[in-house]
Each structure stands twice: as C-alpha cells, then as structure tokens.
Design a protein around this nucleic acid. Sequence first.
DNA 1: CCATGTGAACCGGTTCACAGCG
DNA 2: CGCTGTGAACCGGTTCACATGG
Lengths: 229, 229
Amino acid sequence: MNPSRPRIPEATVARLAVYLRVLTGLADGGRASVSSGELAGAAGVNPAGLRKDLSHLGPCGVRGVGYDVLGLRDRIARVLGVERSRACVLVGLGNLGSALADYAGFGSRGFEFVGLFDSAPERIGQVIGGHAVQPVTELDQVVVGTRATIGVIATPAEVAQAVCDRLTAAGVRSILNFAPVALVAPAGVDVRQVDLSVELQVLAFLDTQRDTPDDARRDARVPALGGMS
Amino acid sequence: MNPSRPRIPEATVARLAVYLRVLTGLADGGRASVSSGELAGAAGVNPAGLRKDLSHLGPCGVRGVGYDVLGLRDRIARVLGVERSRACVLVGLGNLGSALADYAGFGSRGFEFVGLFDSAPERIGQVIGGHAVQPVTELDQVVVGTRATIGVIATPAEVAQAVCDRLTAAGVRSILNFAPVALVAPAGVDVRQVDLSVELQVLAFLDTQRDTPDDARRDARVPALGGMS
DNA sequence: CCATGTGAACCGGTTCACAGCG
DNA sequence: CGCTGTGAACCGGTTCACATGG
C-alpha cells in the first residue's frame, strides 16, 4: 500500500522472486495481462495471498481485468533491485558450487559473480559459468578489490567457518551458507543457512507419518500443500 | 509432551534433523552430556526454542544437568525414522543432482538411492555416490520394482513436470523439486519446492535494503538472525 | 459484473518467564 | 541451585470475506 519503503515481509520478497520468474516467461510468450488466479496458479500459491503480496508495492492492477504483464514485471524487478548489479563471490566449487556458478539467470537477476574460489589445485583455472576458478588464497584481495558484498559458501563443513571469517573480515555483509554448520559472524552480517539434507529429511518424515498414521487409523490425509522455498 | 504420536510441527522436524547432526558429532567426539544452551548454540537456535522442540518427544533430559548425548541422539533418530531405510530415486544428474547423489550421510540417515536417472547419453553409466546412472527410460520400472516412495527432481525446468507425472504414475508419494517451476501433482502426493535462486534473491534484497535504508536514514540495523533452512 | 485491494479473523510458530525437579 | 519443561503472551504470516472501483 505505502508507495515508498514500508518494509516488505521477507516471505513476500521470496514469492516476489517467483512471480518475477513467471511474469518473465509470460512476457516472453507475448502475453499482455494476467489475473491473480492464473498467476497464482503458475507460481503455486493462493490467489488472495498473491494479491496481498502485490499490495505491498501499491496498487498495480486494474480492477475487473487483472495485471499488465510487462508493467508488473518491471515493478517487481525494480523492488527486488534487479537493475542494480551486485558483486558476489562464491567459495567451493564442488558439484553444488558448480551448479550455482553455472546457473543462468543470475546475471539477468542482478547478480554478478566476480570471483569463484577453491582450494583444490585441479579445479583452479576451470571455467564455470563464464568465470575461471581462482585459488582461495586470492579471496581476500578480490573481495576488497571488487567491493563484493555478498558471499556464497559451498565448501565442506570443516572449512566453512574459516571462509566465513575471511569473507567478513574482507568486508562481505551478506552470506549464504550451504555447508551444514551454524556459522558465527560479527553483528551486522546477515547469514542465511540452506541445508539440502534437512529438506529431504523433512520430506521423509512426512512420508513415514503418512504410511504410519498411528498404530492404527487409515484416514486423515496430510493437506499436501506444495510449499515455497 | 504426549508420548505417542501427537503431531510434531514441521518447523520442529526440520530442526530435529539439525540437532541430530550436532549430537552425532558430539557423540563421535566422546561427549557424554550437553545443556540446551550449548546444543542450541551449535545448532544456531534459541535455547528455549530447542527445549520446546524436544518437549514434543516427551521429557528426555535431566533437570539441573542437561541431556545425555547418546540417549538424545538415538531418541531423535527414532522419531525421524532414520532406522527405517527409504528407497529414493533421483532424476537429473547435472551439477546439482550430482551433489545430492554424492552427499555422504544420506545413507546413514535413512535414505537409500535406488536409482539415478538422466537422459544425456554421456552421463549414463557414470558412477556417482556409489550408483551408476541409468537412462531415464527405465525410471518407471525401477520405481515400481523397488517400491520407491520418494523422488527427487533436479532436472531443467522444462522437463520437471513430465518427470513428476511419471514418478507419481509409478507410485511415488513424496517429491522434492529443485527445478524452478510449480509442479501440479495428484492429491495425496506431497510436493516440496526448493529454489536456490530465490534464497540468493532474498539475501540480495535484504542487502540492498541495508545499504539504502530509505532515501535518508542511517540507523535501524536489521536484526540479522541466522535463519534455519 | 468482474477481478483487485484490504481489514479482520485465524493459525502456527517463537519468545518469555517461571514453575518443577533432580 | 541449575537447567529442564511448559503455559501464556506475542508476532508474523495466511486465509477469508467483502468493500472498491473499472
């Protein structure tokens, strides 16, 4: 509603990123407008929730009609800050790190990897996603030199804290950590934890619970609502 | 509190998986007992919240002392169903799929990949995490033959829905989807969505918000509480 | 008459403060 | 006396129903 900067809920921000992706696809397909129902369906959310999310950007639809695809796409892109290119560094280029570095669409979403780092000699010099892997010894100077503010850690758990320390010391303020350890970072540094094995474990738990609803009982299905990341 | 099956909150289940990992490390290190404060610190959560989580398993600590490491570890393992081996199939062995197939600790956490599938000829026969990649044409018969109930999709977005359809048709009831599309699945099938690019986008948004608190204003730091997956 | 925008009820989860117990 | 276990306040987010307006 508030047009300036009224603090958008984090859960909404996550979904805006999804809407943006869907709208981009729609725009590329030549669609001119969408209803909240259709957009919500494609994004896997509730239509009313989608409208509430969009209400944080101020009115941006036409009542009785729907949303202008291009207009809404650009509006969300602006709010998410896609036009502003952000320098990121990525440490650890095993399979997961390579998947991230390789991910197309980061570039078009406001991210620029300015450095890929690994400690394994055989990975140095490999080109992934258009960038050559550098020895991790150069991490600090690259972060300082490029003024990178975002760091992604995809290393083994044992070295993640050390990497975190170096990143923060060099000036990184936001860290996305895929290593299965809780990192401690100085105040003012935002650390977000993603643990892929936990996702699978939760799925397995719910799976088990369904097969064994209780020592008896064959009713009560789980709602099975497809969640958001 | 309730000793039988009182429905454990999903958020708690996710954290139990984290506690289990920490406790396993502690046990391997020879530790006999932990306090909620120490365990919470290592898991990156609030001590009171940890105790509340554990309360769902019934009393399992000693007041004034703490928790028995081995006892608590085994209790959580039992609740999460780690002893029960679950058959999983994984489709799509690009970098991300390979990272998942390679992830050690899945085997010791109740998961068994009974099939890795890809459509690219050059990947067929590759051994990843101890299993050979099979052509995706054999997906259906393997799922039926192994009675696999969990499917993981790590394919490009374009084919994810088709893979989902085949998995559910073959009997899979739980799906973890890493492709950036909202899947539609029959009722009774639990689909969970993980979108790595969204995580990064949220981080970037918060990062931007801090650098530009508003067109003016240099106060008001973001709490920066390290989240859970 | 349609689909948007939104105030208000609702719900799950988190935090807090303290009671309970070794 | 310390740390666990938990009822109760608290909070963010979701759902619902309806008012709003092209």
